[in-house]
């Protein structure tokens, strides 16, 4: 008894050191920089003179910037295309895989997941070649099958952004399929049996049973992919980097714009203001994500 009390009252060095290190690290790497960022976004920051407080002037000026407004629009398009198309196609594939079993099922999951583990930058370089006008894989397939002039893909301002989104959807299909498939496995067999006895068709099983029962996973994925769509950088930088932001700024997105403002034109204040706008948009989405993540499903 005496021993135990003595141990309790002694300062626990593990708690002290580990919690101090975690706190200090986050203070330096996230919390501190966040406040520094807010301060910077409210300042006039050129490299020569002292920074001066200018209030919301950076924010007002970026909202007058056409390219910034385009970027904002493109990020919204990104979300609006990637989230429904990505989740819809993955739901369908997951349901098809759910109906297979044994070795075939394992192989399909393995194949669909393969692009997920590869480097986004490397994949972007590969897809750039696939999209290459006239001689890329897509152009050759379109010309060979339909005997029509293939589009210029990444060099066509009308579809360049969609081409990048398509690559993004392709790359992460496996991830969504795995999440949704795992959800389907958890649905009790009896639900499908009674649907079959009631004579439910493929489509009504899909829309009336699968989708409502997987709503947690769908919300989780919608949150995740909205976040990813807001943070898009590497794929745009790599696939349409020359000229930066694509032909006629057609693939310009927020983080690319922030990068250009801060690191090409050294306008840190404006860059910081853009990142704060991304931050505000992320806020609600991340809350949604943490909430559904905390449900902690088992795979």
């Amino acid at each position: 008894m005496d021993l135990v009390t003595r141990k309790r009252s002694k300062i626990n060095s593990y708690i002290l050191i580990v919690s101090f290190l975690i706190f200090a690290y986050y203070l330096i790497i996230t919390i501190g920089p966040l406040f520094y960022n807010i301060y910077m976004s409210l300042s006039k920051t050129d490299l020569m003179s002292e920074w001066t407080f200018v209030g919301l002037r950076n924010y007002l000026s970026i909202f007058k910037d056409q390219i910034f407004l385009k970027s904002l629009l493109h990020n919204f398009i990104y979300i609006l295309v990637m989230v429904p198309v990505g989740i819809g196609s993955s739901l369908l594939i997951a349901f098809l895989i759910y109906n297979t079993n044994g070795f075939a099922k394992k192989t399909y999951l393995f194949m669909f997941f393969a692009p997920v583990v590869t480097s986004l930058i490397a994949v972007s370089v590969i897809w750039r070649l696939l999209y290459y006008p006239n001689v890329g894989l897509f152009a050759r397939v379109i010309q060979g099958l339909f005997h029509i002039e293939a589009p210029l893909f990444l060099q066509d301002p009308n579809i360049a952004l969609l081409c990048i989104i398509l690559m993004d959807i392709w790359k992460d299909t496996g991830l969504r399929v795995v999440v949704l498939h795992a959800g389907m496995e958890e649905i009790p067999e009896s639900v499908f049996d009674s649907a079959r006895i009631d004579g439910a068709s493929f489509f009504s099983t899909f829309f009336r049973i699968i989708i409502p029962l997987l709503r947690h996973q769908i919300i989780f994925l919608a949150a995740i992919y909205s976040i990813n769509a807001l943070r898009v950088f590497g794929q745009v930088y790599m696939m349409t980097g020359n000229p930066a932001g694509g032909p006629a700024h057609s693939t310009q997105v927020l983080v690319v714009r922030m990068y250009q403002e801060a690191f090409l034109y050294t306008k840190f204040g404006r860059g910081a203001a853009i990142s704060m706008i991304v931050f505000i948009m992320l806020f609600g989405l991340v809350y949604l994500e943490i909430k559904s993540f905390s449900k902690g499903w088992e795979y």
């Binding site: 996230t30 501190g32 966040l34 943070r231 990142s275 994500e289």
Partner: peptide
């Protein structure tokens, strides 16, 4: 998690 690298990359 709410503050990914993109947000604080400049500071």
């Amino acid at each position: 998690i709410m503050i990914p690298a993109e947000i604080v990359i400049i500071p």
